[in-house]
Simulated scan of single mutants.
Amino acid sequence: MEKAYMLISCEIGEEQSLSTQLKKIPEVKNCLITYGSYDVVAEFVTDTPAQMNEIISAKIRKLPKIRSTITLRVTN
């Protein structure tokens, strides 16, 4: 099992819309709107490192209105 947290900065006023989009991705287990340097924190889990890379690059980072991301992978 692979687990990660992604810190996301988005365009102003798009936090709720982005959170809604992220929650539709099955691998996203939790999504919180925050205030400060990052607008949204998403927790997601996959079975393999390859799936993790796919989620990051092909699903999450390509969502519209995202300015930047930082991914924090969790190791057991």
Rank of each mutant, 00 (worst) to 15 (best):
M1V: 09
M1K: 05
M1G: 12
M1A: 11
E2F: 05
E2C: 14
E2M: 14
A4V: 08
L7T: 09
I8N: 01
I8E: 06
I8L: 08
C10D: 01
E11W: 01
E11C: 01
I12M: 10
G13C: 11
G13F: 07
G13E: 08
E14K: 14
E14T: 10
E15H: 03
E15L: 03
Q16A: 12
S17N: 14
L18T: 06
S19N: 11
T20N: 12
T20Q: 07
T20F: 11
Q21H: 11
K23I: 06
I25F: 05
I25K: 05
I25P: 03
E27Q: 14
K29Y: 00
C31I: 12
L32G: 00
L32P: 00
T34Y: 05
Y35N: 13
G36Q: 06
S37I: 06
Y38H: 11
D39S: 03
V40P: 04
V41D: 02
E43M: 05
F44W: 10
T46E: 02
D47G: 15
T48N: 12
Q51G: 09
M52E: 07
M52W: 02
E54A: 14
I55H: 07
I55A: 05
I55Q: 04
I56F: 01
S57F: 13
K59I: 00
K59F: 07
I60L: 05
K62L: 12
K62E: 09
L63D: 00
L63N: 02
P64M: 06
K65W: 10
I66T: 09
I66N: 06
I66F: 03
R67Q: 09
R67M: 09
S68I: 05
S68A: 15
T69W: 08
T69F: 09
I70S: 09
T71D: 10
T71N: 09
T71L: 04
R73Y: 10
V74P: 08
T75H: 13
T75F: 14
N76D: 15
